Computed example of a mutant assay.
Amino acid sequence: MKTAIVGAGAMGQLFGARLQLAGEDVTLFDTQQRTIDALNSSGISLETEKGTEHVSVKARRAEDERGPFDLFVVFTKGFHTRSAVESVQHLLGPGSVGLTLQNGLGHAKILMEFFGPEHTVAGVTDFPADLEAVGRVKSSERGSVRIGSLGPQGHADEVAQAFNRAGLNAKVESDVRIPIWEKVAFNAALNSLSAVTGKVVGDLAKSPDARALISAVLAETRSVAASEGIDLSVERVGGAVESAFANHAAHKTSMLADLEAGRPTEVDFIGGAVVETGRESGVPTPVLETLCRLVRIRTAN
């Protein structure tokens, strides 16, 4: 497929490199000219346990490109989703498919406005991606992609096939809302608490108080998900949290990194979205709501 990666950050560069290495026709779109120039000049070097692979890539501003593209994979921050999809609207064809693998809730609804339910795919990924510099990505072979179509006759299968050719370990889910909400629960707990306390993952693991708050957030998120007809597994999410504690102790969450860099956070698309959904359904989320308010206070400062 002719594939557009919308947002050439760490995840965009990881997936762009993987797909290009597998022989797909990939273009990365970004708004930062410095990023575009670096990618066009030097390509992407991808480091994993197997070593380092290098691939040349194409990077553009959306307004400088002509379409159509078959697949659009959106990797922007949540607050940029609508403007990002609007920027590539002129590149959509009648059969174009939109895919969101972004953190949080609400992105698929935006994509459906542009692509339609039959041509919108949503999902999650747990592949790590650390951007050491533009065009230098450190990742792992251990990761997966879980996706599902949002229309009754969607395109998740063909997207998964392309991803699997690229070694991205994609699986099509019968109800993709479950892995999406489970990742939201994971991020709502770890990202919010890390951002409020300024602690990395390993520090949270050592604190009984942090563990108690994480358990409370997971329980609240499960209750909200249940009100939406989604059977979220606290045990599975808790296992993922323990895995993060054991294997990524030095990791600084993206929300904490954004705060320290003075950038906007995605709190309203992760924990904040859970709180809002709970409010609409009559499900209280006092612990998570307090953490989100504290993140916003830190952002305002």
Rank of each mutant, 00 (worst) to 15 (best):
I44F: 07
I44E: 07
S45Y: 03
S45Q: 15
L46V: 04
L46P: 07
L46W: 08
E47D: 08
T48Y: 02
T48M: 03
E49L: 06
E49Q: 12
G51T: 03
T52Y: 05
E53P: 00
H54A: 13
H54T: 15
V55K: 08
S56V: 09
V57S: 05
V57N: 08
A59H: 11
A59T: 13
R60P: 00
R61H: 13
R61A: 07
A62L: 00
A62S: 15
E63W: 10
D64A: 14
D64T: 12
E65L: 11
G67F: 06
F69T: 09
F69R: 12
D70C: 03
L71H: 07
L71N: 03
L71R: 10
F72G: 04
V73N: 07
F75W: 13
K77E: 01
K77C: 11
K77G: 10
F79Y: 15
F79E: 10
F79C: 03
T81H: 12
S83F: 04
A84I: 14
V85Q: 11
V85C: 06
E86A: 14
S87C: 13
S87I: 12
S87P: 13
H90C: 09
H90N: 11
L91N: 13
L92F: 13
G93N: 12
G93E: 10
P94A: 12
P94K: 15
S96H: 02
S96I: 05
S96L: 02
S96A: 14
V97E: 05
G98W: 01
G98I: 09
G98P: 03
L99V: 15
T100F: 00
N103G: 06
N103V: 04
L105F: 01
G106V: 02
H107A: 14
A108M: 01
K109E: 15
K109Q: 15
I110H: 00
M112H: 00
E113Q: 13
F114G: 01
F114K: 00
F114I: 01
G116Q: 10
G116F: 02
G116L: 04
P117V: 02
P117F: 00
H119C: 02
T120M: 01
T120I: 00
V121F: 05
G123R: 03
G123W: 06
V124S: 07
V124L: 09
V124Q: 06
T125V: 11
D126K: 10
D126V: 05
D126Y: 11
F127M: 09
F127A: 06
P128K: 07
D130P: 03
D130F: 14
D130C: 09
L131R: 15
L131P: 10
L131M: 14
E132T: 12
E132I: 13
E132R: 14
E132C: 08
E132Y: 09
A133H: 12
V134T: 13
V134I: 13
V134W: 11
G135R: 10
R136N: 10
R136S: 09
R136W: 05
V137S: 07
K138V: 15
S139D: 04
S139Q: 06
S140W: 10
E141K: 04
E141P: 04
E141Y: 01
E141C: 09
R142V: 10
R142F: 10
G143S: 06
G143R: 04
